[in-house]
């Protein structure tokens, strides 16, 4: 593999964009690795948080956005809590996730699908509803059978109602999603 030519950084404005959108000063990161050290998901990542922070500092957009780690992030904010330089690292990860979606670089479809299924249920009924989310997720991905082992116990204990509790204002909630979709379309044009 050829070396990365740092003098020919592919997207010089990328660091600025990330700083702007996340509201964080990424130049203060001195690569101590504390975010990686405390990250509960680190063992499953293909690129560590501190490495992603470094990629942002160098303006290496593709390295920062094209990875599964962004999707495996649990949003637990341990990185933020322990950063010695007051960087809200979880916010940076979240920002990169949003950017990756906009750029069509999502590297973990199942996780994104679960989120979409969850939000679809909310859009439809106004609240989340476990069986609805699971059914939607399994239809989207053909996955999710691994969760079936706990379904009998949950059903038996009456923890999974079959019918959603639709709220009266569900149209109002649906309109939030509709307007959101519209603003996104405008943004893309």
């Amino acid at each position: 593999m050829a070396s990365i030519r740092l003098d020919q950084v592919r997207d010089a404005g990328f660091l600025h964009e990330v700083e702007e959108e996340s509201g964080q000063n990424i130049s203060t990161c001195y690569q101590c690795g504390n975010c990686t050290a405390g990250c509960p998901g680190a063992g499953f990542y293909d690129r560590q948080v501190s490495q992603i922070m470094r990629a942002v500092q160098l303006g290496l957009k593709d390295e920062a956005l094209r990875n599964r780690s962004l999707w495996l992030c649990l949003s637990c904010s341990t990185c933020t809590a322990r950063c010695p330089n007051n960087i809200d690292v979880a916010r940076v990860m979240e920002t990169l996730r949003h950017m990756a979606r906009r750029e069509g670089l999502v590297q973990d479809r199942p996780i994104e699908s679960f989120w979409k299924s969850f939000l679809d249920t909310v859009k439809l009924t106004g609240r989340s509803f476990e069986i609805g989310v699971m059914a939607d997720y399994m239809m989207r991905t053909g996955r999710g059978w691994g969760n079936m082992d706990m379904a009998p116990a949950a059903l038996l204990k009456g923890k999974l109602p079959f019918l959603p509790s639709c709220i009266r204002g569900r149209d109002e909630v649906a309109r939030i999603f509709k307007r959101y979709a519209e603003t996104k379309k405008e943004g893309q044009q």
Partner: peptide, 11 residues
């Protein structure tokens, strides 16, 4: 209604 939970702010 639902607060949006993790999926909403992840998106």
């Amino acid at each position: 209604s639902c607060c949006g939970s993790t999926p909403a702010h992840a998106m």
